[in-house]
Structure formats: C-alpha cells, structure tokens
Simulated scan of single mutants.
Amino acid sequence: MRRTAFAVVSLLFALFVSAALAGDAEVKAGQAVIDGQLKALIANDGAKAYSFAAPNVKRIFPTVDTFMNMVTNGYPPVRQPQSYSFGKVEQMGPTSLIQQVLIVGPDGKDYEAVYTLEQEPDGSFQITGCSLRAANSLST
C-alpha cells in the first residue's frame, strides 16, 4: 500500500514539474517574441517588427507601413521605449498568453502594456494584440 501511494505521489509530482517546465518554456518563448518586436521597433526595422504580428493583426494592418503608422501614432511608448521589463504573465490555455510589460516611455513616464499572444500551428508565438495605459505609480 505504501509503495502504491508513493508511486502515485511521485507520478503526480513528475506531471506537475513537467507541466510547470512546459509553461515556463512557453512564457519564455512569448517574452522572446515581445522582446524581438520591441528591439525591432527601437531599431526602426518595421519589417522585422511586423513579422512578430499574428495573422489577425496583419489582416487589419496589411502592410508594414500601415502597421508602423498605427504603432507610431497610437503607441509611442511601445514604439520608442527608454526601457522595459516583463511583469506578470498568465497562461490562458496551452496556446495563449497574456504578458504585462512595464515601459518607461520616450516622455520618461511609466506605462503598462498588456500583450496577448497565440501559438501558431508551427509552434511559434505571435502577438495578437497590445493594450497600453499610463501606469499608476506613486512617487515618494
């Protein structure tokens, strides 16, 4: 009886660890996509920045120029961040992530960008959306 209980507990622990590692790999892959897009935007490489956009975004903004115009005019802190770091992440399912990115904008103010990402059939993650707001920070 003890051996059976130990085997069950060991199996459950192994499943938990492998699930956690898989989730960690997906989170890192999603963060690499966001990081790649932000670096491309900073470098003024519109084609590369556009390559990280999911098909739904590319349907709305069918060219690099329309995409870059939208980012430049609607998301200045994302377009030219002074700095950024990853915050909270939530895995919404096996193929979907929501990632918070804390940004210091070109104006020196703090912003919060919330990215949504989906895993594509080829296994890569792409950005399906981004919402941006001024961060609520207290200064002392």
Results as ranks from 00 to 15, higher is better:
Lys39Phe: 05
Pro106Ala: 13
Asp110Asn: 13
Glu118Ile: 10
Lys109Glu: 03
Gly93Phe: 01
Leu11Met: 11
Tyr50Arg: 14
Leu102Ile: 06
Phe67Cys: 08
Leu38Gln: 12
Ser124His: 09
Asp122Gln: 12
Pro62Val: 10
Gln119Pro: 09
Tyr84His: 09
Leu11Asp: 15
Lys48Pro: 05
Asn69Gln: 06
Arg79Thr: 03
Tyr50Asp: 09
Pro121Leu: 15
Phe86Arg: 00
Thr72Gly: 04
Gly108Lys: 00
Gln82Pro: 00
Ser18Ala: 07
Phe13Lys: 07
Gln91Met: 08
Met92Ile: 00
Val64His: 03
Asp107Gln: 00
Lys48His: 09
Phe125Ile: 02
Gln126Ser: 14
Gly93Pro: 01
Ala54Lys: 05
Ala19Glu: 13
Gln126Ala: 14
Gly36Leu: 02
Gln31Cys: 02
Gly105Pro: 02
Val114Phe: 00
Glu26Lys: 04
Gln82Cys: 02
Asn56Val: 13
Phe125Gln: 02
Asp35Pro: 07
Val27Asp: 01
Ser131Thr: 07
Gly23Thr: 09
Gln119Gly: 06
Thr63Gly: 08
Ala54Asp: 08
Leu132Val: 04
Ala135Ser: 15
Phe125Arg: 03
Asp110Tyr: 10
Gly105Asn: 02
Lys58Cys: 13
Gly36Phe: 01
Cys130Gln: 06
Val64Ile: 04
Lys28Trp: 03
Ala47Tyr: 10
Met70Pro: 09
Ile127Met: 03
Leu102Cys: 04
Ala14Tyr: 14
Thr66Cys: 07
Gln100Arg: 07
Leu132Trp: 02
Val9Ile: 14
Tyr84Arg: 07
Ser96Val: 03
Val9Phe: 12
Gln91Asn: 10
Gly74Asp: 06
Met70Ile: 11
Thr116Val: 04
Ala54Thr: 04
Ile103Pro: 08
Leu15Pro: 04
Ala29His: 00
Val71Pro: 10
Pro76Asp: 14
Val89Ser: 12
Ala32Asp: 01
Thr95Asp: 08
Lys28Cys: 03
Ala47Gly: 15
Lys88Tyr: 13
Gln37Val: 05
Ser96Arg: 01
Ala40Pro: 03
Gln37Asn: 15
Thr63Ala: 15
Tyr75Thr: 12
Pro55Thr: 05
Gly105Leu: 03
Pro81Asn: 03
Pro121Gln: 11
Ser83Val: 01
Val17Met: 05
Arg59Trp: 11
Asp107Glu: 01
Leu117Met: 04
Asp122Tyr: 08
Val8Tyr: 14
Glu90Pro: 07
Val27His: 03
Ala113Asn: 01
Ala47Lys: 06
Thr95Asn: 07
Phe16Ala: 07
Cys130Leu: 10
Val78Tyr: 13
Phe16Val: 06
Ser96Met: 02
Tyr111Ile: 09
Arg133Lys: 14
Leu38Tyr: 08
Val71His: 10
Arg133Thr: 08
Gln31Asn: 01
Glu90Ser: 07
Gly105His: 03
Val64Glu: 06
Pro94Trp: 14
Val114Leu: 05
Ala49Met: 08
Asp65Thr: 12
Ala54Leu: 05
Val57Phe: 05
Pro94Met: 13
Ala49Arg: 06
Gly105Trp: 02
Pro121Met: 12
Gln80Ser: 04
Ser85Met: 15
Lys109Leu: 00
Thr66Met: 08
Ala43Arg: 08
Thr95Arg: 12
Ile34Asn: 04
Ala134Ser: 08
Val114Trp: 02
Thr63Asp: 12
Phe52Thr: 09
Phe13Gln: 14
Val8Met: 13
Thr128Trp: 04
Pro106Thr: 12
